[in-house]
Design a binder for these strands. Structure first.
Length: 348
DNA sequence: TATCCGTGGAT
DNA sequence: TATCCAAGGAT
Protein backbone atom coordinates (compact mmCIF):
# COMPACT_ATOMS: atom_id res chain seq x y z
CA UNK A 1 0.00 0.00 0.00
CA UNK A 2 2.86 2.32 0.81
CA UNK A 3 4.29 1.52 -2.61
CA UNK A 4 1.20 2.81 -4.41
CA UNK A 5 1.29 5.95 -2.31
CA UNK A 6 4.96 6.65 -3.03
CA UNK A 7 4.40 6.06 -6.76
CA UNK A 8 1.59 8.61 -6.66
CA UNK A 9 3.80 11.04 -4.73
CA UNK A 10 6.61 10.68 -7.26
CA UNK A 11 4.19 11.87 -9.95
CA UNK A 12 2.02 14.37 -8.04
CA UNK A 13 4.03 15.85 -5.18
CA UNK A 14 3.12 19.50 -4.73
CA UNK A 15 5.88 22.02 -5.32
CA UNK A 16 6.30 23.79 -1.97
CA UNK A 17 8.98 26.39 -1.18
CA UNK A 18 10.26 24.44 1.84
CA UNK A 19 10.12 21.03 0.17
CA UNK A 20 12.84 18.95 -1.46
CA UNK A 21 10.80 17.05 -4.03
CA UNK A 22 11.07 13.29 -4.60
CA UNK A 23 13.34 13.62 -7.66
CA UNK A 24 15.84 15.91 -5.94
CA UNK A 25 15.62 13.78 -2.79
CA UNK A 26 16.46 10.67 -4.82
CA UNK A 27 19.40 12.56 -6.33
CA UNK A 28 20.80 13.05 -2.84
CA UNK A 29 19.68 16.60 -2.04
CA UNK A 30 19.31 16.97 1.73
CA UNK A 31 16.51 19.15 3.13
CA UNK A 32 17.54 22.09 5.31
CA UNK A 33 16.36 21.22 8.85
CA UNK A 34 15.84 24.92 9.59
CA UNK A 35 13.45 25.28 6.64
CA UNK A 36 11.65 22.06 7.57
CA UNK A 37 11.25 23.14 11.19
CA UNK A 38 10.12 26.68 10.33
CA UNK A 39 7.57 25.45 7.80
CA UNK A 40 6.20 22.75 10.11
CA UNK A 41 5.66 25.22 12.95
CA UNK A 42 3.96 27.67 10.59
CA UNK A 43 1.78 24.86 9.21
CA UNK A 44 0.42 23.89 12.64
CA UNK A 45 -3.36 24.32 12.20
CA UNK A 46 -2.64 26.62 9.27
CA UNK A 47 -3.08 26.18 5.51
CA UNK A 48 -0.29 26.10 2.95
CA UNK A 49 -1.81 29.15 1.22
CA UNK A 50 -1.62 31.20 4.42
CA UNK A 51 1.94 30.10 5.23
CA UNK A 52 3.68 30.61 1.90
CA UNK A 53 4.38 34.36 2.06
CA UNK A 54 5.27 34.25 5.76
CA UNK A 55 7.82 31.53 5.01
CA UNK A 56 9.39 33.67 2.27
CA UNK A 57 9.60 36.72 4.52
CA UNK A 58 11.06 34.81 7.48
CA UNK A 59 13.74 33.01 5.45
CA UNK A 60 14.66 36.22 3.60
CA UNK A 61 15.07 38.13 6.86
CA UNK A 62 16.53 35.27 8.93
CA UNK A 63 18.25 32.75 6.60
CA UNK A 64 19.33 30.33 9.33
CA UNK A 65 18.65 29.40 12.93
CA UNK A 66 21.56 31.49 14.27
CA UNK A 67 20.17 34.60 12.60
CA UNK A 68 16.72 33.97 14.00
CA UNK A 69 18.15 33.31 17.46
CA UNK A 70 19.79 36.75 17.35
CA UNK A 71 16.58 38.55 16.33
CA UNK A 72 14.70 40.88 18.64
CA UNK A 73 11.44 39.61 20.11
CA UNK A 74 9.39 42.52 18.74
CA UNK A 75 10.74 41.94 15.23
CA UNK A 76 9.71 38.27 15.22
CA UNK A 77 6.28 38.95 16.76
CA UNK A 78 5.70 41.70 14.19
CA UNK A 79 6.70 39.45 11.30
CA UNK A 80 4.36 36.73 12.62
CA UNK A 81 1.42 39.15 12.99
CA UNK A 82 -1.64 37.95 11.10
CA UNK A 83 -0.66 34.28 11.07
CA UNK A 84 -2.37 33.51 14.39
CA UNK A 85 -1.64 31.23 17.36
CA UNK A 86 1.02 33.62 18.61
CA UNK A 87 2.42 31.20 21.19
CA UNK A 88 4.03 29.58 18.14
CA UNK A 89 6.08 32.71 17.50
CA UNK A 90 7.17 33.00 21.13
CA UNK A 91 8.18 29.33 21.17
CA UNK A 92 9.84 29.67 17.76
CA UNK A 93 12.28 32.18 19.24
CA UNK A 94 12.83 30.09 22.39
CA UNK A 95 13.53 27.07 20.20
CA UNK A 96 15.92 28.93 17.87
CA UNK A 97 17.87 30.23 20.87
CA UNK A 98 17.99 26.77 22.47
CA UNK A 99 19.30 25.24 19.23
CA UNK A 100 21.89 28.01 18.86
CA UNK A 101 23.02 27.91 22.49
CA UNK A 102 22.69 24.25 23.47
CA UNK A 103 23.12 22.41 20.17
CA UNK A 104 25.76 24.44 18.32
CA UNK A 105 23.20 25.69 15.81
CA UNK A 106 22.24 22.21 14.60
CA UNK A 107 18.81 20.70 15.13
CA UNK A 108 18.69 17.32 16.93
CA UNK A 109 18.19 14.54 14.36
CA UNK A 110 15.98 12.27 16.49
CA UNK A 111 12.32 12.45 17.46
CA UNK A 112 13.09 12.49 21.18
CA UNK A 113 15.75 15.18 20.82
CA UNK A 114 13.37 17.37 18.85
CA UNK A 115 10.50 16.71 21.26
CA UNK A 116 12.46 18.33 24.07
CA UNK A 117 12.48 21.71 22.28
CA UNK A 118 9.87 24.47 22.83
CA UNK A 119 6.95 24.47 20.40
CA UNK A 120 7.77 20.99 19.08
CA UNK A 121 5.18 18.38 20.02
CA UNK A 122 4.58 14.79 18.88
CA UNK A 123 3.53 15.74 15.35
CA UNK A 124 6.28 18.26 14.61
CA UNK A 125 9.03 16.12 16.18
CA UNK A 126 8.07 13.15 14.01
CA UNK A 127 7.67 15.34 10.92
CA UNK A 128 11.12 16.93 11.23
CA UNK A 129 12.78 13.59 12.03
CA UNK A 130 11.13 11.96 9.01
CA UNK A 131 11.33 14.79 6.46
CA UNK A 132 14.65 16.40 7.35
CA UNK A 133 16.55 13.31 8.58
CA UNK A 134 14.64 10.50 6.84
CA UNK A 135 13.98 8.62 10.05
CA UNK A 136 11.20 6.01 10.10
CA UNK A 137 8.89 7.99 12.38
CA UNK A 138 5.11 7.95 12.10
CA UNK A 139 3.69 11.38 11.35
CA UNK A 140 0.08 11.91 12.42
CA UNK A 141 -1.75 15.14 11.67
CA UNK A 142 -5.34 15.87 10.73
CA UNK A 143 -4.78 14.64 7.19
CA UNK A 144 -3.31 11.33 8.31
CA UNK A 145 -6.18 10.82 10.77
CA UNK A 146 -8.72 11.37 8.01
CA UNK A 147 -6.93 9.09 5.52
CA UNK A 148 -6.59 6.28 8.10
CA UNK A 149 -10.20 6.62 9.28
CA UNK A 150 -11.37 6.15 5.69
CA UNK A 151 -8.85 3.55 4.57
CA UNK A 152 -9.84 1.29 7.49
CA UNK A 153 -13.43 2.55 7.93
CA UNK A 154 -12.91 3.50 11.58
CA UNK A 155 -16.27 4.47 13.12
CA UNK A 156 -14.90 5.69 16.47
CA UNK A 157 -15.33 9.47 16.63
CA UNK A 158 -12.43 11.88 17.12
CA UNK A 159 -10.72 12.71 19.34
CA UNK A 160 -11.29 9.29 20.97
CA UNK A 161 -10.07 7.54 17.82
CA UNK A 162 -6.67 9.24 17.83
CA UNK A 163 -4.63 6.38 19.38
CA UNK A 164 -6.33 3.86 17.10
CA UNK A 165 -5.60 5.96 14.01
CA UNK A 166 -2.00 6.50 15.12
CA UNK A 167 -1.50 2.73 15.41
CA UNK A 168 -2.91 2.20 11.93
CA UNK A 169 -0.64 4.89 10.52
CA UNK A 170 2.35 3.27 12.21
CA UNK A 171 1.60 -0.01 10.44
CA UNK A 172 1.94 1.78 7.09
CA UNK A 173 5.16 3.65 7.86
CA UNK A 174 7.89 2.18 5.63
CA UNK A 175 11.57 1.79 6.46
CA UNK A 176 12.36 3.04 2.93
CA UNK A 177 11.69 6.73 2.21
CA UNK A 178 9.73 7.45 5.40
CA UNK A 179 10.03 11.20 4.83
CA UNK A 180 8.47 11.04 1.38
CA UNK A 181 5.83 8.65 2.71
CA UNK A 182 4.83 11.10 5.46
CA UNK A 183 4.55 13.93 2.97
CA UNK A 184 2.65 11.67 0.55
CA UNK A 185 -0.08 10.87 3.09
CA UNK A 186 -0.43 14.56 3.97
CA UNK A 187 -0.51 15.62 0.30
CA UNK A 188 -3.14 12.95 -0.33
CA UNK A 189 -5.27 14.27 2.51
CA UNK A 190 -4.86 17.86 1.34
CA UNK A 191 -5.62 17.29 -2.34
CA UNK A 192 -7.55 13.99 -2.85
CA UNK A 193 -8.84 12.65 0.47
CA UNK A 194 -10.33 16.03 1.42
CA UNK A 195 -12.79 16.58 4.30
CA UNK A 196 -15.92 17.41 2.30
CA UNK A 197 -15.91 15.84 -1.14
CA UNK A 198 -13.06 13.33 -1.48
CA UNK A 199 -11.97 12.59 -5.07
CA UNK A 200 -12.10 8.83 -4.61
CA UNK A 201 -12.19 8.23 -8.36
CA UNK A 202 -8.58 9.35 -8.80
CA UNK A 203 -7.23 8.19 -5.41
CA UNK A 204 -4.19 5.90 -5.52
CA UNK A 205 -5.67 4.03 -2.51
CA UNK A 206 -9.19 3.59 -3.95
CA UNK A 207 -8.77 -0.20 -4.25
CA UNK A 208 -7.90 -1.00 -0.63
CA UNK A 209 -10.06 1.81 0.87
CA UNK A 210 -12.76 0.30 3.13
CA UNK A 211 -14.80 3.48 3.46
CA UNK A 212 -14.98 3.86 -0.30
CA UNK A 213 -16.16 0.25 -0.62
CA UNK A 214 -18.93 1.00 1.87
CA UNK A 215 -19.76 4.34 0.25
CA UNK A 216 -19.14 6.30 3.47
CA UNK A 217 -15.82 8.02 2.74
CA UNK A 218 -17.29 11.54 2.97
CA UNK A 219 -18.85 10.70 6.37
CA UNK A 220 -15.53 9.79 8.01
CA UNK A 221 -13.92 10.51 10.33
CA UNK A 222 -16.83 10.84 12.76
CA UNK A 223 -16.47 13.77 15.12
CA UNK A 224 -18.03 14.70 18.44
CA UNK A 225 -20.21 17.81 18.28
CA UNK A 226 -18.43 20.96 19.44
CA UNK A 227 -19.74 23.58 21.82
CA UNK A 228 -21.24 26.76 20.34
CA UNK A 229 -19.20 29.97 20.59
CA UNK A 230 -20.37 32.65 23.03
CA UNK A 231 -20.18 36.35 22.13
CA UNK A 232 -17.93 38.66 24.15
CA UNK A 233 -17.95 42.44 24.27
CA UNK A 234 -15.18 44.98 24.73
CA UNK A 235 -13.97 48.51 24.02
CA UNK A 236 -10.66 49.47 22.40
CA UNK A 237 -9.17 52.97 22.65
CA UNK A 238 -7.31 54.31 19.66
CA UNK A 239 -5.46 57.44 20.61
CA UNK A 240 -3.20 59.57 18.45
CA UNK A 241 -0.98 62.26 19.93
CA UNK A 242 -0.76 65.63 18.20
CA UNK A 243 2.71 64.70 16.89
CA UNK A 244 1.25 61.60 15.18
CA UNK A 245 2.39 58.99 17.71
CA UNK A 246 -0.07 56.16 18.52
CA UNK A 247 -0.91 54.92 22.02
CA UNK A 248 -0.31 51.17 21.98
CA UNK A 249 0.46 48.47 24.51
CA UNK A 250 2.45 45.24 24.54
CA UNK A 251 0.08 42.49 25.67
CA UNK A 252 1.09 40.05 28.45
CA UNK A 253 3.27 37.11 27.39
CA UNK A 254 0.60 34.50 28.05
CA UNK A 255 -3.03 34.33 27.06
CA UNK A 256 -4.94 35.62 24.06
CA UNK A 257 -2.70 37.45 21.55
CA UNK A 258 0.13 37.03 24.07
CA UNK A 259 3.20 39.14 23.42
CA UNK A 260 1.55 41.05 20.57
CA UNK A 261 1.03 44.77 20.09
CA UNK A 262 -2.52 46.05 20.60
CA UNK A 263 -4.76 48.96 21.51
CA UNK A 264 -5.44 49.58 25.21
CA UNK A 265 -8.95 48.68 26.28
CA UNK A 266 -11.35 46.82 28.52
CA UNK A 267 -11.39 43.12 29.17
CA UNK A 268 -13.45 41.07 26.75
CA UNK A 269 -16.35 39.42 28.57
CA UNK A 270 -19.93 38.34 27.98
CA UNK A 271 -21.17 41.28 30.07
CA UNK A 272 -21.20 44.93 29.05
CA UNK A 273 -17.65 46.33 29.35
CA UNK A 274 -16.87 48.99 31.94
CA UNK A 275 -15.40 52.18 30.54
CA UNK A 276 -11.62 52.27 31.12
CA UNK A 277 -9.89 54.88 28.92
CA UNK A 278 -6.06 54.82 29.05
CA UNK A 279 -5.85 58.62 29.21
CA UNK A 280 -8.11 61.58 29.93
CA UNK A 281 -9.42 62.94 26.64
CA UNK A 282 -12.56 63.49 24.66
CA UNK A 283 -13.08 59.96 23.41
CA UNK A 284 -15.67 59.74 20.69
CA UNK A 285 -17.53 56.78 19.23
CA UNK A 286 -16.83 56.34 15.52
CA UNK A 287 -20.16 54.52 15.25
CA UNK A 288 -18.81 51.25 13.91
CA UNK A 289 -17.63 48.18 15.80
CA UNK A 290 -15.16 45.45 14.97
CA UNK A 291 -16.54 41.94 14.59
CA UNK A 292 -14.02 39.18 14.87
CA UNK A 293 -14.18 35.46 15.63
CA UNK A 294 -11.51 33.70 17.67
CA UNK A 295 -11.13 29.97 18.23
CA UNK A 296 -13.69 29.81 21.02
CA UNK A 297 -15.71 33.05 21.02
CA UNK A 298 -17.11 35.82 18.85
CA UNK A 299 -16.00 39.35 19.69
CA UNK A 300 -17.87 42.62 19.20
CA UNK A 301 -15.35 45.34 19.87
CA UNK A 302 -16.61 48.92 20.25
CA UNK A 303 -14.12 51.68 19.47
CA UNK A 304 -13.27 55.05 20.96
CA UNK A 305 -10.93 57.46 19.22
CA UNK A 306 -9.29 60.63 20.49
CA UNK A 307 -6.65 63.21 19.71
CA UNK A 308 -4.25 63.33 22.66
CA UNK A 309 -2.29 66.41 23.80
CA UNK A 310 1.49 66.63 23.39
CA UNK A 311 2.03 66.38 27.17
CA UNK A 312 -0.30 63.38 27.58
CA UNK A 313 0.76 60.91 30.31
CA UNK A 314 -1.23 57.70 29.74
CA UNK A 315 -2.23 55.36 32.57
CA UNK A 316 -1.11 52.39 30.47
CA UNK A 317 0.56 51.62 27.18
CA UNK A 318 3.24 53.57 25.36
CA UNK A 319 3.43 56.00 22.49
CA UNK A 320 4.86 54.63 19.26
CA UNK A 321 6.16 57.27 16.87
CA UNK A 322 4.36 57.46 13.55
CA UNK A 323 7.49 56.42 11.63
CA UNK A 324 7.96 53.35 13.90
CA UNK A 325 4.38 52.15 13.59
CA UNK A 326 3.64 49.41 11.06
CA UNK A 327 -0.04 48.34 11.01
CA UNK A 328 1.21 44.98 9.72
CA UNK A 329 2.77 44.39 13.16
CA UNK A 330 -0.74 44.14 14.64
CA UNK A 331 -2.74 40.93 15.07
CA UNK A 332 -5.77 40.90 12.79
CA UNK A 333 -8.40 42.05 15.29
CA UNK A 334 -6.25 45.07 16.22
CA UNK A 335 -5.59 45.87 12.57
CA UNK A 336 -9.34 45.77 11.89
CA UNK A 337 -9.83 48.27 14.73
CA UNK A 338 -7.14 50.53 13.31
CA UNK A 339 -8.61 50.41 9.81
CA UNK A 340 -12.09 51.31 11.09
CA UNK A 341 -10.81 54.14 13.28
CA UNK A 342 -8.68 55.55 10.50
CA UNK A 343 -11.62 55.46 8.09
CA UNK A 344 -13.87 57.26 10.57
CA UNK A 345 -11.31 59.97 11.25
CA UNK A 346 -10.46 60.26 7.60
CA UNK A 347 -6.77 60.66 8.33
CA UNK A 348 -4.06 59.37 6.02
C1' DT B 1 -7.86 15.07 30.13
C1' DA B 2 -10.00 19.35 28.74
C1' DT B 3 -9.38 23.87 27.63
C1' DC B 4 -7.13 27.60 25.55
C1' DC B 5 -5.09 29.60 21.60
C1' DG B 6 -6.09 32.92 15.34
C1' DT B 7 -7.03 33.31 10.91
C1' DG B 8 -8.87 33.10 6.25
C1' DG B 9 -10.73 30.26 2.66
C1' DA B 10 -14.18 26.83 1.27
C1' DT B 11 -18.81 25.40 1.42
C1' DT C 1 -24.45 34.35 6.97
C1' DA C 2 -22.84 30.44 9.68
C1' DT C 3 -20.11 26.62 10.15
C1' DC C 4 -16.24 23.88 9.15
C1' DC C 5 -11.65 23.23 8.67
C1' DA C 6 -6.14 23.44 8.32
C1' DA C 7 1.00 19.89 8.35
C1' DG C 8 -0.96 21.03 17.00
C1' DG C 9 1.24 22.48 21.46
C1' DA C 10 1.11 24.01 26.18
C1' DT C 11 -0.87 23.84 30.44
Amino acid sequence: MSRALLDWYDRHARDLPWRVGPAARAAGVQPDPYAVWLSEVMLQQTTVAAVRDYFYRFTARWPDVEALAAAEDAAVMGEWAGLGYYARARNLLKCARAVARDHGGRFPDSRDGLLALPGIGPYTAAAIAAIAFDRAETVVDGNVERVMARLFAVQTPLPTAKPELTALAARLTPMLRPGDHAQAVMDLGATICTPKRPACGICPLRTPCAARAQGIAADLPRKLAKAPKPTRLGIAYIGRRSDGAWLLERRPESGLLGGMLGWPGTDWAETEPVCAPPADAEWRDPGAEVRHTFTHFHLRLALRVAELPADCTPRCGMFVAHRDFRPSDLPTVMRKAFDLARASVGCD
